[in-house]
Every structure is written in C-alpha cells, then in structure tokens.
C-alpha cells in the first residue's frame, strides 16, 4: 500500500470580495459578495514509503493547500486522501504521531527561550522515553551540526540556524512521513545546502517519506527523483525530473568556444536557422537546438575547426519551469 494516496482530492475556499476604499467597506457591512475559488481541483496520486517527491507549481497553484489536506489541517471539499492508512482530516493521535509538517515561514519554537525547551515539550507530547530522546537529540544535533545552539535563546539565532532548529524540533519524534513547505526559504546558499544534505541523509538512513514544495530548483534537483507538477489546482505532470525536462523542453543548449571569433556568415552557412542565444563573449557560440538535431549540429560546429571547448546541456531547470508556468507549456498527462 502506498504511504500517501490522494484520489480526486479537491478544496474550495470561500471568501468575500470587497470594493476598495471606505465606500467599499461600508457597502460590505450591508451586503457581501461571497466568491468561491477551487484551490485544488480533483488531483490523484500515490507516493510509496521512502520516496522523496517534489511538489512544483507557481504561487497559488494549490501545493500548500494539498499539503495541508494531507496533514489533516484542512478538510477536503471533495475526494479522499489516506496517509499511512489514516484519513488525515480525522487527526487521530496515532496518525499525528507519525507525521510532521515543516513550513519555512511558520515557527514551532518558543522565541524567548532556548530551543532545547521546545524539544523537551516535544518529548512529552510524543511520549518519547528519556534514553531514546537523548540519543535522538545527539544524532540530530550531529547531523544538523547544531550542538552548540541547543541552549541559545531562539531569538538570538540566525535565520539559517533557526530553520535547522525548526527541522530539529519537528523531527525529534522520528516521523515516517515528512511534509516540507519551502524548507529553505530565505536561507543563504550554504545553509540551503546543509538542509538538503540533512534531508537526503534522513531519507537514506531512516527511510522517511518526504513530500516537499520549493521554489528553489536546486532543492528539487538534488532531492527529488520524482516530481508532481500542479497548476490551477490540477495535476499537470507526475514522473521523473528528467522526463519532465524532456517533455517540457524539446531543446538542448549547445555551446562552443572557438580559439578565434567566428563570423555570422560562417555560422549561418553551417547552422541554417538554428536559434542562437545572446553571448557577450565573441569566442563563444551558444545555440538552442532541437533534441533530434543535437548530434548533427555538434558535428557541424566541430567541422568549422578551431573549437577549444564544446558542451551539450539541458536548459537550466528553473528556466524550464518558469517557461512552463508562464506559457503553460506542459501538456496535461494522466498521473
């Protein structure tokens, strides 16, 4: 049985529309226009135990709403979900003991006292025996490299240190399923990398199932062999990151660096109508090449002679995703 199952999961929010200004406020006192928006529109997927899956989508696509339904924070408007065999919306204690949700912009740590006090609270909440608790604290502190921070007031910690301690507090009960919503938001590159390394180790050593949303494509590339793409509440893609890239971009980037500048006429003669990318370097030629023509174009570039370096790459993943969401380029594919 899959660890996480969603079947036609949907969530509709109701909200009031108010005209701007004082008149709008007064009008809304007497008459309010209630509107509905379908944040998640009937999505279905399954995630096996031990998988790390990235949840991609533009702002407002329905990622966080889906996570909240899977955690039991929100009641679905339609459809159903099970996580570890439990219905999340029932919020049974036996279920809550096995999951954790870490939100990059929500805190569980008490602000004015050291994080260790929050860990002691977690110990009581999850009835962790003292010996187990000490062992887990030592292990997590070593993995996150925060041994020196446990007894420092939370408000004195840097953003990166705080995020690590948030992860710490949410993981001390060893959840089987971890939901992460923007876990590296606002962190510098070094801290981002440390959090990623930690999550990778956690998944490898404890088999934790991880579903994460992030706007940092490095998070997705480094952690998630599989991605779910959601847009306007609907699942657009479910599969490997490489497949997504292949499907989303029928092109590759081919770059050649020459020992001497190459004239436009020579390039046009050899490349025909292949799209050239702007470059400040007169010795570099960068091309966007259809996948099926990559080998031939590379051969033609080498045929010009004087090639110092040649590279063939996928387009940057964040560029692909940006293009995908701006143009809605991905064809809907049954999940």
């Amino acid at each position: 049985m899959a660890a996480i199952n969603a079947t036609d999961l949907a969530k509709t929010y109701r909200f009031h529309r108010k005209e701007p200004g004082l008149f709008g406020s007064l009008k809304s006192l007497v008459r309010r226009q209630t509107l509905e928006t379908r944040a998640v529109d009937g999505i279905s997927f399954g995630i096996e135990a031990g998988e790390v899956v990235g949840f991609l989508g533009p702002n407002g696509a329905g990622k966080t709403t889906t996570l909240k339904m899977l955690c039991g924070l929100l009641y679905p408007s339609a459809g159903s979900a099970t996580v570890l065999g439990h219905v999340p919306a029932r919020r049974e204690h036996a279920y809550l003991r096995q999951i954790a949700l870490v939100m990059g912009n929500k805190n569980v740590l008490a602000w004015d006292i050291p994080a260790y006090e929050t860990l002691l609270l977690m110990k009581e909440m999850y009835s962790i025996p003292t010996a187990d608790f000490r062992r887990r604290v030592d292990e997590l502190a070593a993995m996150l490299e925060v041994e020196q921070l446990l007894r420092v007031q939370v408000r004195k910690l840097s953003l990166g240190e705080r995020m690590k301690m948030e992860l710490f507090a949410n993981l001390v009960h060893q959840p089987a399923v971890l939901f992460l919503d923007e876990p590296t938001i606002g962190l510098d590159v070094v801290s981002q990398q440390r959090v990623r390394d930690f999550l990778r180790t956690l998944n490898r050593e404890q088999g934790t199932t991880i579903l994460l949303t992030s706007h940092y494509m490095d998070d997705i590339e480094q952690l998630c062999p599989r991605v779910l793409v959601i847009d306007h509440g609907q699942l657009r893609f479910d599969g490997g990151l490489a497949t997504l890239v292949e499907q989303a971009t029928p092109h590759k980037l081919v770059s050649a660096v020459f020992f001497e500048p190459v004239t436009d006429a020579m390039l046009t003669n050899v490349l025909g109508d292949i799209e050239r990318r702007a470059s400040d370097d007169p010795l570099r030629v960068s091309l966007t090449v259809p996948r099926h023509e990559v080998a031939a174009v590379a051969g033609r570039l080498l045929g010009l002679g004087g090639v110092a370096d040649l590279s063939i790459e996928e387009a940057p993943i964040d560029e692909i995703i940006r293009d995908m969401f701006s143009a809605q380029a991905v064809e809907a594919k049954p999940a």
Partner: peptide, 12 residues
C-alpha cells in the same frame, strides 16, 4: 493568522 496549525499537528 493560521498559527494554530502547528498545535493542531501534535497528538495533544
């Protein structure tokens, strides 16, 4: 403000 969420996720 939604800050009830972390409390709702605990088995207490």
């Amino acid at each position: 403000l939604g800050s009830l969420s972390p409390m709702l996720l605990r088995p207490v």
